[in-house]
């Protein structure tokens, strides 16, 4: 999936002269944690996070004392922050975020102009979508031999029972040459499918022994 589909398009931004008390207010009011800093051409020149603000604003100050803090965005922002293109993929964003230990990325066009923002929260929503768990379903765990065509046989049986799949995850199993497959089935009616798979000789995994 591309970033364009996962990003938030309506982005609230600030300029370098914005006072941090104001930036803090904007974040609290809008329940956001990242504010891209733009120049007059809408180009991204910095990023201010809630953490930057907390670091610049001691927690024990009174409201009045906070008003006296005259730091501006330019004093605390990360200059030339990591950015990502709207045509990059979610995988790109995940790896970039993980590698650089950041919480969000401004999405920019080829001229570095702001197009959106993608945060860890947006990526989580995408993951919920990929896992299919936003829809009612049942998890089925199976042990398969690591041979070409194994999954096809399973999918054929699922299709025979007219069941839709929300997601399929494949993981290593403790025994060599075996894989465990978790299929999220969009149904409550798994009994006939399980019976058929058992008759075909497949091992359904005990979820608890797998997880513990």
């Amino acid at each position: 999936m591309f970033i364009k589909k996962a990003m938030t398009s309506k982005v609230i931004s600030i300029d370098i002269e914005t006072e941090i008390i104001k930036a803090h207010e904007i974040m609290t009011k809008n329940n956001i944690r990242h504010l891209p800093v733009l120049d007059k051409d809408n180009k991204v020149i910095g990023m201010v996070t809630d953490r930057d603000i907390r670091s610049a604003m001691p927690f024990n100050l009174s409201k009045k004392e906070k008003q006296n803090i005259k730091f501006k965005a330019k004093d605390i922002m990360t200059e030339n922050p990591y950015t990502i293109s709207s045509l990059a993929t979610i995988q790109d964003a995940l790896l970039l975020i993980q590698k650089n230990k950041i919480g969000g990325l401004p999405v920019v066009d080829e001229n570095n102009k702001l197009k959106g923002i993608v945060s860890v929260r947006d990526l989580l929503s995408s993951f919920i979508n990929v896992l299919g768990i936003g829809e009612p379903g049942t998890l089925l765990g199976l042990v398969l031999e690591e041979k070409i065509g194994q999954l096809k046989k399973i999918v054929d049986v699922i299709t025979e029972f007219k069941i839709s799949m929300g997601s399929v995850l494949v993981a290593r199993y403790q025994e060599e040459n075996k894989r465990v497959v978790f299929i999220y089935l969009l149904t409550n009616n798994v009994i006939p499918l399980k019976k058929k798979l058992k008759v075909m000789g497949y091992t359904l995994i005990d979820p608890i022994s797998w997880y513990i």
Binding site: I133, P136, G137, T138, V190, P207
Partner: peptide
């Protein structure tokens, strides 16, 4: 819900 229907 991570194992059983309906996932809520």
């Amino acid at each position: 819900p991570s194992f059983a229907f309906p996932g809520t």
